[in-house]
Design a protein around this nucleic acid. Structure first.
Length: 575
RNA sequence: CGGUUCGUAGCUCAGCUGGUAGAGCACGUGACUCUUAAUCAUGGGGUCGAGGGUUCGAGCCCCUCCGAACCGACCA
């Protein structure tokens, strides 16, 4: 009984149903497979045919609604593909004299949320609803926790579950009661599959590289750190897989790619989750111009395979992924949106330009950082349609090849969509001496206090010393891409299990802890119910109040316990 | 990290100038052989996120904490 006190009335009733079902010889969690022949989707998409032949079907799913009218009932059965109505008639599922299965098992002990199998035939009701007429119902799994009830009529949804806490912490519930959520994740997989097919069709190789890395390279970000016991050394969770994929280009692969889970120990908000998915691809003998064409083609394919069109609704705007995308150098973008020409400007001139534009600057910001900030503040937001921004300052891009005609710039592009960065790509730096110098520059930044500057990866430099072909690489955030392609406002809506703060369970002392103060076991549940979930919380409580509370609780709930004496209670609250 | 808002029954939400809580769905019992937000009758269900304070009295006012959302800061 102590355990049942924790449960809601509905949960108690469902657990009692478990016992009743077992008494009737029904296993609420049977082991045997169930011979499913159809899904709701395969029935509804071919309904007229199946209906005409009164086709026999076997379907399985979750009961989402019940409408019982005496000896006939309707169920809404939900499976992966949707919902269908099931008609249950007492004399059809209980052909003999014994009507127990319908009257007791079905009506009393099956609930919304239970998973059942239905064997029957296809028909249409007098009201015209596509239905399955049940001949046999099999309980496949009993649900003992009540589901949120969401109702629907004429496409309008009532009492939809929108509570973010419930939706993200208990995604399984979200998926059950919000069918459009499942669609988002089906589309996410379709996006990834489309990209994978595209890469494979070009002969590029999908590879796996280390997630646990001794040196977290390839990006500027704060890593998660962990420890390996046998090696007795720190290991980092990867922040990018760039350096490993380029080692593979050194090794002789022409094109390699990886859908990788990366980890960054930074802020969380609508567009950042601590773990996220990135596609990185590297192709030998190419440059960043080629990669722009490639990226366009890839995104156009994704949009077409998902929506059948390149024009996609995102929030209030329509974004068109039709090739070719606009191409703009960073200098031209700043000229266009901020109205200033940064060509040939010194650091001091750039600093005052930023100040004129109302941008906060400080002394630690170098030339590259100033330009980048200017771009971020004044330009990015205007770039709603897919736009390649090219030729970034060299300070921001330590892994990127110097621009072929301007040594202050790099051959780098980002794709901006909806005012947000979506892709990042380079003509990859393959000069080992230049690479080492750039790493050393990062080290100087780190010594100045930049905790995001890159580590020096000497093995990567060694790889470049053997010679890496010219090559272009591109990275794209799969979570953000999915947000665009499925029109979801938050990264939590495209990650099945987004990171959340852990739920805090209230601490409860065991009964034995109360015994140490000579508190009888039968009073422990009462005290805990009244909020004294630990023995310590009783210390120095006014004995009179406690005495009144517990005796009152005993009386009100008709527990029939022998009330303690006032002196007993006084001893309970003493240390 | 700062600002704003929120946390009440299994779910969605009310709750008056502070007077120990209400509705719909869900659940229990009963009725009903084509319903579909089924219907009708009836019943049960709540430490109002946690803790402290003010008060004769707190869901409501004040403080602290926990969790969430949004905006900003930081960050790719």
């Amino acid at each position: 009984m102590a355990l049942l006190d924790e449960l809601s009335e509905q949960e108690v009733i469902r657990r009692q149903s478990l016992d009743e079902l077992r008494k009737l010889g029904i296993d609420p969690y049977p082991a045997a497979m169930y011979p499913v022949t159809h899904t709701t989707g395969s029935i509804l998409s071919n309904f007229e045919n199946l209906c005409e032949q009164q086709a026999e079907v076997c379907i399985a799913g979750r009961i989402m609604a019940r409408r019982i009218m005496g000896s006939a009932s309707f169920l809404e059965l939900q499976d992966e593909k949707g919902k269908i109505q099931v008609y249950v008639k007492r004399d059809d599922i209980c052909p003999g004299e014994d009507k127990t299965f319908y009257n007791v098992v079905f009506k009393k002990h099956l609930d919304i949320g239970d998973i059942i199998g239905v064997k029957g035939f296809i028909f249409r009701t007098q009201m015209g609803e596509e239905s399955v007429h049940a001949r046999e119902i099999t309980l496949l799994s009993k649900s003992i926790r009540p589901l949120p009830i969401v109702k629907e009529k004429d496409g309008k949804v009532f009492d939809a579950v929108t509570d973010a806490e419930l939706r993200y912490r208990q995604r399984y519930v979200d998926l059950i009661v919000n069918p459009q959520v499942r669609e988002v994740f089906v589309k996410r997989t379709k996006i990834v599959n489309t990209m994978r097919d595209f890469f494979n069709s070009k002969g590029y190789l999908e590879v796996e590289t280390p997630i646990l890395q001794p040196i977290p390279g390839g990006a500027a970000a704060r890593p998660f750190i962990t420890h390996h016991n046998t090696l007795d050394m720190p290991l980092y969770l990867r922040i990018a897989d760039e350096l490993y994929l380029k080692r593979l280009i050194v090794g002789g692969f022409n094109g390699v790619y990886e859908f990788s889970r990366d980890f960054r120990n930074e802020g969380m908000d609508r567009t950042h989750n601590p773990e996220f998915t990135v596609l990185e691809i590297y192709v030998a003998y190419k440059d960043y111009f080629w990669m722009m064409d490639f990226t366009e083609e890839m995104l156009e394919r994704v949009a077409l395979s998902l929506h059948g069109t390149t024009a996609i609704t995102v929030g209030d705007s329509t974004i068109n992924f039709k090739r070719p995308f606009r191409r703009l150098t960073m200098t031209d973008a700043i000229k266009e949106y901020a109205g200033v020409d940064i060509t040939g400007k010194t650091e001091e001139q750039l600093r005052s330009i930023c100040k004129e534009q109302g941008i906060e600057v400080d002394e630690t910001m170098g030339k590259g950082k100033l330009i980048d900030t200017l771009f971020g503040e004044k330009c990015e937001q205007h770039l709603v349609q897919p736009t390649f921004i090219m030729d970034y300052p060299i300070e921001m891009s330590p892994l990127c090849k110097r621009h072929r005609s301007n040594p202050e710039l790099t051959e780098r592009f980002e794709l901006i969509v909806g005012g947000k960065e979506l892709c990042n790509a380079y003509s990859e730096l393959n000069d080992p001496i230049d690479q080492l110098e750039r790493f050393q520059e990062q080290l100087r930044l780190s010594e100045k206090g930049d905790d995001e500057a890159m580590f020096i990866d000497m093995d990567f430099v060694r790889a470049l010393e053997y010679g890496m072909p010219t090559c272009s690489g591109m990275g794209i955030g799969i979570d953000r891409l999915t947000m665009f392609m499925t029109n979801q406002p938050s990264i939590q809506d495209v990650i099945l299990f987004p990171q959340m703060r852990p739920e805090k369970k209230q601490l409860k002392d065991p009964v034995e802890a109360y015994s140490q103060r000579n508190i009888p076991a039968e009073w422990v549940p009462v005290l805990q119910k009244l909020g004294y979930s630990t023995v310590v919380s009783l210390t120095n409580v006014a004995p009179g109040k406690l005495f009144n509370d517990i005796c009152g609780y005993n009386k009100k709930n008709k527990l029939g316990l022998q009330n303690p004496s006032m002196d007993d209670v006084k001893r309970w609250v003493e240390q």
